[in-house]
């Protein structure tokens, strides 16, 4: 199954040319979690602080549904 992964902030700069604005299509197996995906794309864990699945905030153990749009965000600081 496939999901679409979009990186935000300066995360795409870690992978020049790899992440188009429309996102990267990633093949995953069933029951892949948010934490699995972070590991799979080999992003340093401390660089990903917030993950959204289909526009909703997700937790590390949440399973990715087929065709989902996943967004990775970096740690934030005050507004």
């Amino acid at each position: 199954m496939k999901i679409r992964l979009k990186l935000y902030g300066t995360l795409p700069a870690h992978y020049p040319g790899l992440y188009p604005d429309s996102g990267l299509i990633v093949d995953i197996s069933e029951n892949t979690t948010v934490a699995d995906l972070v590991e799979r794309v080999k992003l340093p864990q401390e660089h990903v602080a917030i993950v959204a699945i289909n526009g909703m905030l997700a937790k590390a153990e949440d399973v990715l549904p087929e065709g989902a749009e996943i967004k990775f965000f970096q740690p934030l600081n005050g507004g």
Partner: peptide, 20 residues
Amino acid sequence: FSGQILPEFGTAVLVEPINA
């Protein structure tokens, strides 16, 4: 955040994650 993200996007980097 202060060394790379803020110089590139400023505080506007918050828009997407807060919306998400």
